[in-house]
Design a protein around this nucleic acid. Structure first.
Lengths: 199, 199
DNA sequence: TCGGTTACTTAACAGTGTTAACCATTCTTT
DNA sequence: AAAGAATGGTTAACACTGTTAAGTAACCGA
């Protein structure tokens, strides 16, 4: 039903993503998408149940790309600490250099998020599961000091999202250098989880 | 113009906050607010320039309360580390126990936030300045290891916001205990900034 | 009592998501 | 080949949205 590849469907998605990034969430309307696609607004409903489903699909695509980017960035790295760092930096790098895709994921408010189907949300956790594994390994090898890896991974994810949000929303203090902020913040997140050795 | 206390103005704000929390951002409409207040929709425009300004006022009020809560929680504590912890925990506690007020602050997305007047945004930084001071003091006393306190404070704020967001949006994995998540996450944030002594 | 201000109203505009009904064209089946 | 069904779109309409313009009724000072 919705799995089959369809050129118009893809066109709608692409236009939506562009409009979303260019003109913002608030001004995204079905009619505007349709106008730009050269079709009638109601035609969108042939491919998406409603506006929410269209947005959810957009999220899903971005999440997929994010997960892939993180996985690829960490792929092949055997050293636990370095792998840990690569996962974290992969996340940050994707977010910073693909703001339009990253922001789509979180542009949909908490409200609308409540309607986000749980089984789709599970997919979003793929790169989180990656973190869990590396932490568990880190603990077992004695380089990390964490009670519950599941919680720790969530905590890291939350903190990273916080960092990215501040940077992308451009709320950053003008006195602060962006890259320095990112580097130092990430460093602190990492340090918060490594075993405390001597100073 | 907008500073004078006015009972109807306050009533509009109160109703708006309630509607916002109960029914979410998406379904908040001027007409709905008006209906509940027993006035016509256009009357709201006598007290607020438009919907954005109404929302901004709502944010401002919440920010004020948040700042006060954090200040009060840390007030009088002389020990640097304990003060540091109290500021952080004050923030988290306010956010978790006043979700309706905290969420109002961040319910308005980056998009609308861009229209948020900068001078009002400055007010929002009061409790952040509090953090900067305590970190600077911590560094000078040698209990904290931070290059730029200004950045560190921002980083902490971002991380805390990330933690709160995950908890309030109820995206938390069902296997994870909420309080444990908060406690451990905060602990890790703090640890990321303290000086590394022996294990 | 006249004028003006204040606090509000109704009517209207342009836009929104979404549904129902309709119309071609094409594919399938008899 | 004829009939029917499915495909891929359309237009018209409903009930809503934020916002503006114009109007109204009550009060207030001269």
């Amino acid at each position: 039903m919705s799995e089959a590849e369809n050129p118009l469907r893809d066109k709608i998605l692409e236009i939506s993503r562009h409009l979303l990034f260019d003109e913002g969430f608030d001004s995204l309307s079905m009619r505007k998408i349709a106008r730009r696609a050269g079709i009638s607004a109601t035609s969108i409903y042939l491919y998406f149940q409603n506006k929410d489903h269209l947005l959810h699909t957009l999220i899903e695509e971005s999440v997929e790309e994010l997960s892939q980017a993180v996985e690829q960035n960490a792929d092949g790295e055997k050293d636990i600490i370095r792998r840990f760092n690569k996962i974290i930096n992969g996340y940050i790098e994707f977010a910073i250099s693909n703001p339009e895709k990253y922001q789509v994921i979180y542009m949909i408010r908490p409200n609308a998020m409540a309607r986000y189907p749980k089984e789709k949300f599970r997919k979003a956790r793929r790169c989180y599961e990656l973190l869990v594994k590396v932490i568990e390994e880190g603990v077992s090898k004695g380089v990390m000091e964490v009670e519950k890896p599941v919680i720790a991974a969530y905590s890291i994810w939350a903190q990273l999202h916080g960092i990215v949000t501040v940077v992308l929303s451009q709320h950053l203090d003008s006195r602060i250098d962006r890259n320095q902020f990112i580097t130092e913040s990430v460093e602190h997140v990492v340090q918060g989880f490594l075993i405390r050795t001597t100073v």
